[in-house]
């Protein structure tokens, strides 16, 4: 079994004259929680969107589970889309469906499981992410910000994906919720051999659950590796990230 799940090489992204990435390289290994870090506007979310085939890079190569995304066939792309889970920053729950319908939409569309099992699976995922069972019947408009995030995670987890993409999963969660979220993610990763790629600003998340991460800056990946390896990088942006007051509190307390 190949150990590398995602490879991005020499990726270039342009919006008009505005160059976002200029030769981005990174690798994600199986079973790890991989973080994409960077300041606002450094192109983290854009990179994530390219990996999940929402945007097409100007040039470069993205390989996902052995498929080259620039030349992938419709069938392979569809199969990838069936089986990964994506959590959007704003939740992106379908507003015309209830939470339960949102969570179950892929199960109903892509599997032949009996209806009562689908319902149990939905209930299970909903309680797994820490939502009360009564949330199932609510519409997205009736949820608070944190609940929306959890519901969206339940939807991303519905198909028991091998690969999970999270766009700022803990932003907008209270510290307790964020901690529970981190714990759940580690638990799932250990049991389901999940690979997680997440865009995050949250220093706590990076300290506690992320195995390896890449720091984006200057249109490139300026550091990649474990926390320890990244901290060794002399690049000024890394210093700004972890040397600021927020970062220092963390490094004093240790892991």
């Amino acid at each position: 079994m190949n150990d590398t799940i995602i490879t991005v090489s020499d990726l270039v992204t342009r919006f008009g004259d505005n160059v976002i990435h200029e030769g981005v390289n990174l690798t994600v290994r199986r079973g790890e929680i991989y973080g994409l870090l960077g300041g606002s506007g450094s192109g983290k979310s854009t990179l994530l969107k390219q990996i999940i085939m929402l945007l097409r890079p100007a040039s470069g190569k993205i390989t996902l589970l052995g498929h080259d995304l620039m030349t992938i066939s419709r069938k392979d792309a569809a199969s990838l889309r069936h089986h990964w889970g994506v959590l959007f920053q704003g939740g992106a729950l379908y507003s015309s469906l209830t939470v339960a319908q949102n969570v179950g939409i892929k199960l109903r569309e892509y599997t032949d499981l009996p209806e009562d099992m689908i319902e149990d699976l939905i209930q299970m995922k909903i309680s797994m992410v820490g939502l009360p069972p009564t949330a199932a019947a609510l519409y997205p408009a009736e949820l608070s910000g944190g609940m929306t995030k959890r519901a969206a995670l339940a939807r991303a987890l519905a198909m028991d994906p091998q690969l999970l993409f999270l766009d700022e999963p803990t932003s907008g969660l209270d510290p307790i919720g964020a901690e529970a979220f981190d714990k759940l993610l580690i638990e799932l990763r250990d049991i389901l051999s999940l690979t997680v790629v997440m865009v995050t600003h949250d220093l706590d998340t990076i300290w506690t659950i992320v195995d390896r991460f890449a720091v984006l800056g200057d249109k490139k990946v300026i550091a990649e590796g474990t926390l320890h390896e990244v901290l060794q990088t002399p690049h000024p942006i890394v210093g700004q990230f972890f040397g600021g007051p927020r970062g220092q509190i963390r490094s004093r307390d240790g892991k």
């Binding site: 299970m124 995922k125 309680s127 797994m128 069972p133 638990e187 250990d190 049991i191 389901l192």
Partner: peptide, 15 residues
């Protein structure tokens, strides 16, 4: 052991 862990996890959240 993985199956047992999964069992324990799901049992906890079983509706």
């Amino acid at each position: 052991s993985e199956q047992e862990k999964l069992y324990a996890l799901l049992q906890k959240y079983s509706p």
